[in-house]
Design a protein around this nucleic acid. Structure first.
Lengths: 145, 145
DNA sequence: ATATGTGCAAATGGTTTGCAGTGAG
DNA sequence: CTCACTGCAAACCATTTGCACATAT
């Protein structure tokens, strides 16, 4: 998990740079986000943290994520039906594949979106800064079930 | 607006087929969705409708949209920050370009996503059924402002 | 020492629901 | 005539906020 450690350091550094303190609760949130590859919801993070710090409040988790979003150290994936999921491991735009049955979210390798973004910018006159690409379907497991 | 008329007919037909009634309020929602190219929110639709039917309730708008979603006669675009927007004119997956300042949403022409979807299916083992592709940036107007 | 962070509880805001009355088919 | 639809208000639920206390720096 060397890359998760690096992500964690990066997050801590970012918070310190803008004058934020590193509390144990906050560190626990950062750890979960830096390590997880399954794009957890706030609730999932909260449940996880309560094992370590039973008194931690949901509000603290939300507040921490808000700061990380501002720092662009976490990527928010909002869904109309199922709320928001977070990716602290790869906090930059990249494609996702979402199972419409069990809700699993995975990162496929690949994709040169930059080329397509440039094309869109040209055609629309927009100054494109970021993007989002999601594919929906049934994961291998749910195809059998 | 010939294609909007066609969309409207298609929607009405769809509703009738599953035994739903066509009330004036409902028809007003359908019209707005079939005609608009600006991806309105529920609130925008509601405001629009009140001009014609001042007593119409928000709940009715929501309920109608829920049915249209089931029929796949309207495409829902959920955003984490700004809620959901709806496209009844082209209710199938297609790319969108969203202005991060004024919230405008436009449909660029183009895109062969099918190829990319097939690639994703192969790599992930998922059975891909649909997708979503959004580009974010500043629209020409907001680049000046 | 001194603000920032925490935890709790209350507030918010978009969306959904329950239900009695209304109206499309 | 009937049963689905409407409108209203209440319920929901994820997220946000206010505030007194705790604590990282």
């Amino acid at each position: 998990m060397a890359d998760a450690d690096q992500r964690l350091e990066q997050m801590v550094r970012g918070l310190r740079e803008i004058g934020h303190r590193i509390t144990p609760q906050r560190l626990a949130v950062l750890k979960i986000l830096a390590e997880s590859k399954d794009h957890p919801s706030v609730g999932m993070i909260y449940d996880q943290i309560k094992k370590e710090f039973p008194t931690t409040s949901l509000a603290t988790v939300y507040k921490t994520i808000t700061v990380l979003k501002e720092l662009e150290e976490v990527l928010e994936l909002g869904f109309a039906d199922v709320g928001s999921r977070y990716d602290g491991n790869r906090p930059f735009p990249h494609p996702h594949v979402i199972c419409t049955k069990c809700g699993a979210i995975v990162d496929p390798q690949f994709s040169n979106m930059e080329k397509m973004a440039a094309e869109m910018a040209k055609k629309s006159g927009f100054n494109i800064t970021h993007h989002r690409l999601d594919f929906f379907g049934l994961c291998p497991k749910c195809q059998k079930g």
